[in-house]
Computed example of a mutant assay.
Amino acid sequence: MRLARFTSEARSELLAQTAYYETIRKGLGARFRTEIAEGVLICAVAGDYQMPEYWLSRVDR
């Protein structure tokens, strides 16, 4: 089983979103983290406050 790889920006967003979900309900942040895809490079973890397509500058086209 391969783990997901994150850019530094996406890792920060993942940690922030995990903490936020834990404030909503105990265990929800942990559940969120287990749902992250395996074997891919993750460039962004967008919360509700992010503008659409804010992450496009992080991706080589």
Rank of each mutant, 00 (worst) to 15 (best):
R2G: 01
R58V: 04
L14W: 05
E22T: 06
R11N: 04
C43A: 15
Y21H: 06
V45C: 12
I36Y: 07
G39P: 01
A4W: 01
T7Q: 08
Y21P: 00
E35C: 10
A10K: 01
Y21V: 03
E35W: 14
S12V: 03
L56K: 03
R61Y: 06
D48Y: 13
T34Q: 13
D48I: 11
I24H: 03
V59Q: 02
R5T: 08
C43Y: 14
E38G: 09
L56S: 07
I24C: 03
L28Y: 13
E53Q: 12
S57Y: 15
D60E: 08
R5E: 08
E38A: 10
R11T: 03
Q17K: 15
S12I: 03
L28A: 08
T23I: 00
R5I: 02
Q17T: 09
Q50S: 08
W55T: 04
V59R: 05
L41D: 09
G47R: 12
T23S: 14
A44P: 03
F6Y: 12
E38Q: 08
E38H: 04
R61I: 01
L3D: 14
R31Q: 05
T7H: 05
P52K: 10
I42M: 06
G29H: 10
M51K: 13
A16C: 03
R2H: 04
A19S: 10
